Computed example of a mutant assay.
Amino acid sequence: MRSTPDRIRQAVSFEIIGLLIVTPLFAWAFDHPMEEMGVLVVLGATAATAWNYLFNLAFDHLLLWRRGDVRKTMPIRISHAVLFEVTLLTLLLPVFAWWLDAFLLTIVVMELSFAGFYLVYAFVFTWGYDTIFPPQKRKRMA
């Protein structure tokens, strides 16, 4: 299991790197001013950071309870990334629709694009993070 400071480092570094990549990319791709997209991305990142912490904590507890180990196999990594993005997409769709005051189809395409980007990014980032900062083995909780 990871310590609270490690989880915070993981969540914050994930969001900062993601912001630096996605803000200019999506401002260009969806033809919105960088400032408008930047505010939206920061709002989304703030929600995602909190959700990242809570989701990863719950996921690790589930792994520890079910398997006695928090290390992730490839299928578990894929499930982890997909579940995280689906739940985050559900949480952020209303915020995106309100902020951009755009057609629902536009927001869905944008959200799916964000989800697709972050799905791949979450997989790569988490794998890299686990490689650089391996989780510590702990004894199984009764």
Rank of each mutant, 00 (worst) to 15 (best):
R7P: 03
I16S: 11
I21N: 02
A50P: 03
G116F: 00
A58F: 12
F55P: 01
T106Y: 06
L93E: 08
T46K: 06
T49F: 08
F30L: 03
T126I: 00
Y129W: 10
L43I: 10
V108E: 00
V70Q: 08
L63G: 08
L83M: 15
T23Y: 05
F114M: 09
G38N: 13
M74C: 01
V95L: 14
G18Q: 01
T87P: 01
H61N: 13
L83A: 14
I76M: 11
L40D: 05
V82C: 02
F84M: 09
F114A: 07
V22I: 09
A97W: 12
E35Q: 05
W51Y: 15
F123L: 15
F117E: 05
L89E: 01
F103L: 14
E15Q: 12
T131E: 10
W127Y: 14
G18D: 05
L25E: 00
I78N: 09
G38S: 13
A115R: 04
Q10D: 08
E36T: 11
E35A: 10
P33W: 04
P134N: 12
Q136N: 13
T46A: 15
L54D: 04
R77Q: 13
F14K: 05
T23V: 15
R9L: 09
F117D: 04
W98D: 03
F14Q: 04
Q10K: 14
E15V: 05
P94M: 12
V86S: 04
T46M: 14
P134Q: 11
H61C: 06
H61L: 11
